[in-house]
Nucleic acid binder design. Structure first.
Length: 295
DNA sequence: GGCCAGGTGCGTA
DNA sequence: TACGCACCTGGC
């Protein structure tokens, strides 16, 4: 795999940017469209192509990609890219190798369904999001649709998030901030019946009753799940999404209605996620993307 | 106006 | 253990 590297950095209207070369098997569109994060929206690209802007890891940032695949990150210099965004975007991981593993995991000769899924989802990278943000966001996601999930999270950030460093946006609120706000205030953000779940999670995390950093370090995946599922409103789906998108646990395999459709339509039984091993979550994203967004 | 949305907790067999 | 159902809300 060719490692992404900075070819140019500069400044436009006081906004720093970096241009990156060597980014293959990466799609900004698919990565931010596949439902793994809720704080980015499409914006007008500065140089054509496709762009998203949002807040992650407490910073405002835009990712822009032209048709030839070239990536520009706005709101970052070369150092920020190497220290923060390279890892956040999982560009330090060899997805060509993962794709090969995923397409042959179920059948050494290659599984037709997995080949199709890997093709449909090609370019998706599992983001390395903040653990608390991922956990809280997927609690909000239950029995909910993406536009409203985004709306609720934006309201939470607006009300309880700190300003980002450049003052252009709001960071995701800390667990402490949400715990202190209290259930009534969280309910007032139109979170509905999830208000008590969010509050329960915030309180346990803020009090250190649940140590998210320890969960991230824990090697035994079922222990990670069990720990998160101590929180009211966190079942297997929410726990697996949080672990996959916020804790770097790529063996997590969240099963939702779409994955049930995939299983029913394309597999006589299973697929057994254990066969994908450490890459189950990436296989899941490919299958999900194929079923949810077609092709 | 009823149904649904990337689930979960709880009550009932 | 294994179902079935309610659940806040906004959009169609």
């Amino acid at each position: 795999m060719e490692k992404p590297y900075v070819v140019n950095e500069g400044n436009t209207d006081g906004l720093p940017f970096v241009e990156i070369a060597g980014v293959g098997n990466f799609s900004v569109f698919k990565t931010f469209d596949c439902g793994q994060c809720f704080r980015f929206d499409p914006t007008a690209p500065r140089r054509g192509g496709y762009a998203v802007s949002g807040v992650a890891l407490g910073r405002t940032v835009s990712f822009e990609q032209t048709a030839d695949g070239a990536l520009t990150v706005y709101g970052a210099d070369a150092r920020d890219f190497e220290k923060i965004w390279l890892s956040y975007l999982s560009l330090d991981t060899d997805y060509d190798e993962i794709d090969r593993a995923v397409t042959t995991a179920l059948d050494p000769d290659g599984c037709a369904v997995m080949r199709r899924a890997a093709e449909a989802g090609r370019g998706i990278r599992i983001l390395r999001q903040d653990p608390w943000e991922a956990l809280c966001s997927f609690i909000v996601s239950q029995n909910n649709n993406i536009p409203r999930i985004k709306k609720i999270i934006a309201a939470m950030c607006g009300a309880y998030g700190e300003d980002t460093e450049d003052g252009r946006g709001k960071a995701f609120p800390t667990a402490r901030a949400l715990a202190d706000a209290g259930e009534e205030a969280i309910f007032a953000l139109r979170t509905g019946f999830r208000a008590k779940y969010i509050t329960d999670a915030a309180r346990r995390v803020a009090d250190g009753e649940i140590d998210l950093a320890a969960v991230a370090r824990e090697e035994d995946f079922s222990l990670c799940e069990a720990e998160l599922m101590k929180i009211k409103g966190v079942g297997p789906k929410v726990a697996d999404c949080a672990l996959l998108f916020g804790f770097g646990k790529t063996e997590a395999y969240p099963v939702d209605v779409w994955m049930k459709k995939v299983a029913a339509r394309h597999f006589a039984s299973g697929p057994d996620p254990r066969l994908f091993g450490k890459y189950a979550g990436i296989a899941q994203q490919y299958l999900f993307y194929m079923e949810r967004y077609g092709t």
